[in-house]
Simulated assay, not measured.
Amino acid sequence: MLRAIAAPGTGRRAGTRGHWTGPALNLAAVAAGLGAWAALAAAGVSGLPGPRAVAVRAGELIADGTLLDDTVASLRRVLTGFVLGSALAVPVGFLMGWYPVARALIEPYVQFFRTIPPLAIIPLAILLMGIGETPKVFVIFLAAFLSCVIATLQGVVSVDNTLINAARVLGAGDAVVFRRVVVPASAPFILVGMRVGLGAAWATLVAAELIAAQQGLGYRMQQAQIYYELATIFVGLITIGVLGLVMDRLLLAAEHRLTGWQERR
């Protein structure tokens, strides 16, 4: 009896320790990574620039406005492609999951294009869409769409039939079942698919900005490669990583808010 009473308190204390331990471990991991990076740079590994040199270069790029302009250009492309891809993937995924006929008609095309890397479509995009912003956004859109549509489809087909049948027994029609049962049950899958799609969008960005771009983090890194400016390349890599991490954390926060009903470990 005493053990049973003590257990909840013990669990709360453990959870509190875990709450504080997570950020502390994150900071420790970052510090360790910076230390290892500085040690490798000090050892002269392949001309690797150290954290200080990269910070100095970042300050220079910030001071002349280059980093801000490149960041804004890349963010605009990623957000446009990601939002358009996700916005189309969700209804298409629902359509495929809810209607077998739609799934039979659409899924072969989805699976076909999933086997083709979005980067391989760049030459075709240039020929069909020119060298403006459209082909850059299109390849990012495609990467986000293909990641999210499969997750949405899986979410719909994974809904427990018992829940659907129970709703029908209570008199719910198709529209109510879809809105009150299928959509909430699919939300975790959709949000995971969006997070995967966001990663795919950033991964496609650098290659997309090779299409006659004059601004962007990928463009700046490619220019730095020509002149062997390793510090500039590191600034671009770190900026992309930080932006991607922040956007992923925002999606994760939305996931926790929208799926608070779901049990978690």
Rank of each mutant, 00 (worst) to 15 (best):
G47T: 13
G47E: 06
L48W: 01
L48V: 00
L48A: 00
L48M: 09
P49A: 10
P49Y: 08
G50Y: 15
G50P: 07
P51F: 10
P51M: 11
P51Q: 11
A53P: 06
A53T: 04
V54Q: 03
V54H: 05
V54K: 01
V54E: 01
A55M: 11
V56E: 12
R57W: 06
R57F: 06
A58L: 14
A58V: 00
A58S: 10
G59P: 05
G59H: 14
E60R: 15
A63S: 12
A63L: 15
A63G: 09
D64N: 14
D64P: 09
G65P: 05
T66L: 05
T66S: 15
L67F: 01
L67C: 10
L67D: 04
L68C: 10
L68V: 15
L68T: 13
D69C: 01
D69Y: 02
D70P: 09
T71G: 03
T71N: 00
V72H: 14
V72D: 08
S74I: 01
L75T: 00
L75E: 00
R76A: 13
R76M: 05
R77T: 13
R77H: 13
V78F: 07
V78K: 04
V78L: 04
T80L: 14
T80Y: 05
T80S: 13
T80F: 10
F82L: 05
L84M: 08
L84R: 01
L84A: 13
G85Y: 11
G85I: 07
G85W: 12
S86D: 09
S86L: 08
S86M: 11
A87T: 14
A87Q: 05
L88Y: 14
A89W: 15
V90P: 05
V90Q: 03
V92R: 07
G93N: 04
F94Q: 09
F94W: 05
L95M: 12
L95V: 11
G97N: 07
G97K: 03
G97C: 03
G97R: 01
W98K: 11
W98C: 02
P100C: 09
P100V: 00
P100D: 00
V101N: 01
V101E: 05
A102M: 11
R103H: 08
A104L: 09
A104G: 10
A104H: 12
A104I: 04
L105R: 07
L105H: 07
I106H: 09
I106D: 06
E107W: 12
P108L: 04
P108W: 08
P108T: 09
Y109E: 11
Y109G: 09
